[in-house]
């Protein structure tokens, strides 16, 4: 027994010494359950490799969670086992994770929040966010401009959440100022199969549709398949969103059916990790809020947003 204790003690001291030499950044993200989170995971892994190679003093630990409560447990492990100096977190949901992140902050850890914010202000040091209202607004502006301010459109929504509401509200603000009629909106749950079925039913119901706002690229793929089945691809165009590589490729090739895309980059996790790393390896000021734009992707600029190696 005493010998074992001694070994454990030595290991502990070694680990402690190793810990002092290094800055540990914990990255907590949702598991890759669909395309967009798959992109987040890929970018996190890429950035970890880049940062660790560029700055030997940095050590990055990535943990993925399948639910909000699992993510809260992950935070405890990051603190207890990895003794992190900084946390980069893309919260599963805002409310349930606010207190767990606040208690991480109370231990003096540098906190960077990505995408959706926490329910209470003033916890995080850095906030890197996508711009959901901008995604809706940019999509609305393109559709109304392209249709000359009048026509019939259908909308496929995501999963009933704040993200979806913000996008749809901003979209409708633009559309309400035109003579464009929204024939109907239905939830397609950011899912290809649901997109296919909802679009089939829209096509049954409405003989005249000029444009489809699918909001998301997974939905858009289902929509396109339904249009091809009905042989109505040349009557309308489809606007997706997020920047899936297959859709960017279509835009790049000048596909009439998919003329543009609107970015909501999963690479925002990389932005957040880079900024957090800067805080430890340089003395440049980094604290604050960073809102990434949701630019319109057109055939002219599509090549800048095409990442063939990413799974998304």
């Amino acid at each position: 027994m005493p010998r074992l204790t001694r070994i454990v003690l030595v290991l502990f001291v070694l680990a402690l010494g190793f810990g002092f030499a290094q800055t540990v950044i914990g990255v907590s993200i949702p598991a890759a359950t669909h395309g967009w989170t798959g992109g987040v995971n890929w970018w996190a892994a890429e950035t970890k490799a880049r940062l660790e190679a560029a700055y030997p003093t940095l050590q990055i630990v990535i943990s993925t969670a399948g639910s909000a409560s699992e993510q809260a447990n992950d935070l405890e492990d990051l603190i207890a086992i990895h003794q992190i100096d900084a946390l980069v977190i893309l919260p599963f949901e805002s409310d349930p994770l606010t207190e767990p992140v606040a208690s991480v902050k109370d231990r003096g850890v540098f906190v960077t929040v990505v995408d959706r914010g926490l329910a209470r202000e003033g916890i995080e040091d850095v906030h890197v966010a996508g711009n959901n209202p901008a995604l809706g607004r940019v999509s609305g502006e393109y559709i109304s401009e392209r249709l000359g301010g009048e026509g019939n459109i259908v909308v496929l929504r995501g999963i009933p959440t704040v993200i979806d509401n913000e996008r749809v509200e901003a979209f409708m603000e633009v559309i309400d100022q035109t003579n464009i009629e929204v024939l109907d909106m239905r939830y397609a749950n950011w899912n290809r199969d649901d997109g296919f079925e909802v679009m089939q039913d829209f096509l049954t119901r409405f003989p005249e549709i000029d444009a489809v706002w699918a909001q998301d690229d997974d939905i858009a793929i289902g929509v396109i398949e339904a249009l091809e089945q009905a042989g109505r691809t040349d009557e309308m165009f489809v606007v997706g969103g997020a920047g899936m590589k297959e859709m960017i490729l279509r835009v790049m090739e000048g596909d009439e059916l998919v003329p543009v895309n609107v970015l909501y980059p999963p690479a925002m996790i990389a932005t957040a990790m880079e900024i957090t790393a800067l805080n430890f390896v340089t003395s440049v000021p980094v604290l604050g809020r960073y809102i990434l734009d949701s630019p319109l992707i057109t055939p002219e600029n599509a090549a800048d947003y095409y990442f063939p190696d990413s799974p998304f």
């Binding site: 598991a31 359950t33 395309g35 798959g38 992109g39 997974d218 990413s310 799974p311």
Partner: peptide
Amino acid sequence: VTYLADGGTIS
């Protein structure tokens, strides 16, 4: 399936 797809989509 998530593993086979590398978190993305198999086409």
